[in-house]
Every structure is written in C-alpha cells, then in structure tokens.
Amino acid sequence: MIKTIQKSTWIYIAVAFMLVLLPFFKDERWFLFLMIQVFTFGIFAMSYDLLLGYTGIVSFGHAMFFGLGAYSIGITLNFLESTFMNLFLGILLALVLGGIVAFFAGILTLRLKSHYYAMLTLALASLFLVLAEKWRSVTRGSDGFTFRIPELPGPLQDHRNLVVYMFCLVSMVLIFFGLRRLTESPLGKILVAIRENEGRVESLGFRIMPYKVIISVVSGVVASFAGVLYAISIRFVGTNVFGIDVTLDALLMTIIGGVGTLVGPIIGAGIIEFAHHYLSDLSDVHWIFERWIILFGIVYILAVIFFPAGIVGTLWHKLAKRKHKKQEMKQKTSDKLAS
C-alpha cells in the first residue's frame, strides 16, 4: 500500500516539476494566463470535490466562497495601500470570512438533506451576489473594479506573470498534497463513510455534525483562497465571481475529471479551460463555437451517462481491475501448487 502511495506521489511531483519548467519553454502571455486559470480553478474544483466526492454533500452555492475570496482581496487592496502586508491581510481576511460562512453553511447541512441543502446554498450564493451588486460604495456594483497588486522587487517586476504563475502552481501543489493527506487520514475515511451511509456511521458511534462542519470549513477556506488567486491573476473583481456558472464550472470540472479523486478536478479544470480557449477561437469557423457552452452541455450529458466516474475515476477502476485479476491469477497458481 505504502509503495503505491509513494509511486503516485513521485508521479505528481514529476508533473509539478514539469509545470515549473513549462513557462521557460512557452512564455506567451495568453498561455501563462490560461495556465494560471487552470491552477486557480483546479484548486476551486478540488475544494468542491471534498464536498461532493468525499462527503456526498451537493452544493449549488460554492461560488459564494470563491466570490468572498475575490472580493476580500480586491477590497483590501483597493481601499488600503497596495503593499505586501495588505496583500497578506487580504488573503487572511478571505480565509477567515470563507471559514466563517462555511461554518454556518456546514451547520445547515445537518438540518437539511441533499437537494434542500443544494437549494439553500444556491439562495445563499444569490444573497452574496445581490450584496455585491447593491453595496456599491464598496463593491462598485455590477461594474466591478480593478485594483493594483504590490510591485515586486527588482527584476521580478518584469516577470510578474511568471511570478503569479509560480505562486498559483505552488499553492495548487501544496493544497493538493494537503487535501490528499486529509482524505487519506482516519478522518477522511469517516467522511467517505458518511457519503456512503450516514445512518450506519452513527451506529458505529461517530457523530455526523462535526465532520460535515469540518469539511465544509476546509472546503470553504480553500475555495476562498482560489477566489483570491483568481482576483490577483486578473486584478479585477466583478459580480460574476458569485455567479451560478462559477459553481457549475466546478461541478463540471469535478465530474469530467473524476468525482472523489482530487487529481481529477485539476485535470477537469485543465480540459475545460483549454477547451474554452480553443473552442472560442473556432468561432470564425462556425458560430456554434462562440456558444461553446452548448457543446459543453452535450459533453456533460454524455460524460454523466457513459463516464460517470470521470477520467481519473475510470482509469483507477481499470487499474484496480487489472490488479485484482493479477492477484486472482497469483492466488489460483499458488492454490494449484499447494494442491
């Protein structure tokens, strides 16, 4: 078991290393920007996977954490001076706010089951959207606002995009390994058990509430951090960060990549961001590509019907089957030898 974990860890580290080197081979602005979006949404989708894939909580309002993060950093840097101290303060504010809202959302998961909870989160996210639109003195309403990020020292300032790229990449890698450890901890095992059969978890002597609250807070804080990275990367915050399509993106990325796999959502984020980019480019060929979301709707339906486990999930199933077959063969031959 430990052997396989080490093997996969090495693969992940190797991929991360390749991603570190990537901008030195391809440093076009649009490409770096696209990759930053992949990392940002990769983090966001991972946080969604914690709820959906590991604990079985369906939320339609995950964008509220993303938006809280984006607005926290944006407002802090807009109203205060653009220094590293304030950048840090903005990030802290985002994480704390995300955590507090997630705490209360987590408590509600206890009272409301599945789709009722999904509806409630949708309403909560809409509430934040309305707040962002109406509280014009702070948020500039639906126009949104740009803000400055602190200047980097010396020659780094000339490679600002590269620095943001590395910062997002390192954040994603660290968060990935952190969350993977969480899901493979004894607590992570209880979360999966809750997803599988809540009633049985209780009859084993575990209270459900603390687990739902804990995972809701972790997920909310991570999602909020993704919002921070998103805002930093585009240096603009608008009400779109609270939109339902942000949540739907996370859902789509998680499902296409593989629910309950953590690495799947990152791959899903990569596929969707790149597809978005290239499909939009094809709009000269045919107008349908401008409406790329229509195509994705179809892909989404097909994925749910034929690929319910997502890319990574399906791969894992296949590998597990092969391993199982090998073990069976081994068992059979040893049984034969014994007889």
Partner: peptide, 20 residues
C-alpha cells in the same frame, strides 16, 4: 471493518496522520 475499530479506539478527528 477498520472504521468500526477506529470508532472503538476513539480515533475520530485525526486528519494529519495517514491511515496506514
């Protein structure tokens, strides 16, 4: 089965250590 043992041994909120 391990989940049941985990409950009996009161390992309820350990989220840092690996389950192995």
């Amino acid at each position: 089965v391990r989940l049941a043992i985990q409950s009996r041994e009161k390992v309820r909120f350990q989220m840092i250590r690996h389950f192995t």
